[in-house]
Computed example of a mutant assay.
Amino acid sequence: MKSYRKELWFHVTGRRAFINITPQVEECLRESGIREGLLLCNAMHITASVFINDDESGLHHDYDAWLERLAPHAPISQYRHNRTGEDNGDAHLKRQIMGREVVVAVTEGRLDFGTWERIFYGEFDGNRRKRVLVKIIGE
C-alpha cells in the first residue's frame, strides 16, 4: 500500500470565502500515482473547513448568509471566547457546522464523486496563511 501527503496553502484576503480546491486535490491524486484507495482532505486550522458540495455561486451566497445568521460575527462581545482578546468566536462555530474534513473514494485514479460534487475550502477568519492536508492511501 502506498501513502501520499501534501499540504495546500491558502491566504484569503477578507474574513470569509469558499474556494473550490478540487483541481489542487486532483493534482495531488495524479502526483500520488494511487489508482484505488481513499483520499482524506482536512483543514489544519480551527477556523477553516473542508466540505463537499455543488460549485454554484447562489449556493455559496446562501451558505454565507445562513452561517452569518447562525453565528454572526458582530457584536464580538457575544462570544465568551472573544474575551481572550480574539475576535473570531463566530469562526470557530462556523467551522464546526461546516466540518473539518472529507474522505473521498479513489477509483481508477479518479475522485469517485457524484455528479455535482466538488471539494471546497471554507475560510471563516481570513487574512493569514492557512493549510489544508491531503492524505491519500491505496495502491
Score class of each variant (00 low, 15 high):
Val103Leu: 10
Phe51Gln: 11
Val12Arg: 03
Gly126Phe: 09
Thr13Tyr: 15
Thr107Cys: 02
Arg95Ile: 09
Asp54Val: 14
Ile137Met: 00
Tyr4Lys: 01
Glu27Tyr: 12
Asn88Leu: 06
Leu70Ser: 13
Thr22Asp: 07
Ile97Asn: 00
Asp112Lys: 03
Lys135Pro: 00
Phe51Tyr: 01
Leu67Lys: 07
Lys2Ser: 00
Arg95Trp: 07
Glu7Leu: 14
Val132Cys: 14
Thr22Gln: 10
His60Arg: 08
Arg110His: 10
Phe10Val: 01
Gln78His: 11
Phe124Thr: 09
Gly58Glu: 03
Val134Met: 05
Arg100Thr: 13
Gly109His: 11
Gly85Asp: 08
Ile136His: 12
Glu56Cys: 05
Arg83Tyr: 10
Asp125Pro: 04
Asn20Lys: 06
Ala91Phe: 05
Asp112Val: 02
Glu108Leu: 05
Lys94Ala: 09
Ala74Val: 13
Trp9Phe: 14
Val102Tyr: 02
Glu123Ser: 10
Gly58Thr: 08
Gln96Pro: 00
Asp62Ser: 12
Leu29Arg: 01
Pro23Asn: 15
Gln24Asn: 07
Glu86Thr: 11
Glu26Phe: 06
Ile19Trp: 04
His45Arg: 07
His92Tyr: 04
Val102Asn: 05
Asp55Ser: 09
His92Gly: 08
Val104Gln: 13
Arg30Ser: 13
Arg118Tyr: 04
His11Met: 03
Asp90Gly: 05
Tyr63Leu: 15
Glu108Asp: 11
Ile136Thr: 05
Arg110Phe: 03
Gly14Ala: 12
Leu8Trp: 09
His81Tyr: 12
Glu68Tyr: 00
Thr115Pro: 06
Ile21Val: 14
Ile34Val: 14
Ile21Pro: 13
Trp66Met: 15
Asn42His: 05
Leu93Pro: 06
Arg16Pro: 08
Lys94Asn: 02
Thr84Lys: 03
Asp62Met: 01
Ser3Gln: 02
Arg5Pro: 06
Lys130Glu: 13
Glu139Ala: 03
Glu7Pro: 03
Arg5His: 14
Arg16Gln: 12
Arg128Gln: 10
Glu139Ser: 00
Phe124Gln: 09
Leu70Val: 13
Ile119Glu: 06
Ala71Asp: 07
His11Thr: 14
Leu38Lys: 04
Leu8Asp: 12
His11Asn: 10
Phe18Arg: 11
Arg128Pro: 05
Gln78Ser: 14
Asp55Cys: 14
Arg128Glu: 14
His73Trp: 14
His92Met: 09
Phe51Asn: 11
Leu8Ser: 11
Tyr63Ala: 05
Arg30Trp: 00
Ile137Glu: 10
Pro75Asn: 11
His92Glu: 07
Ile137Tyr: 04
Arg118Ala: 09
His81Asp: 07
Lys130Ile: 13
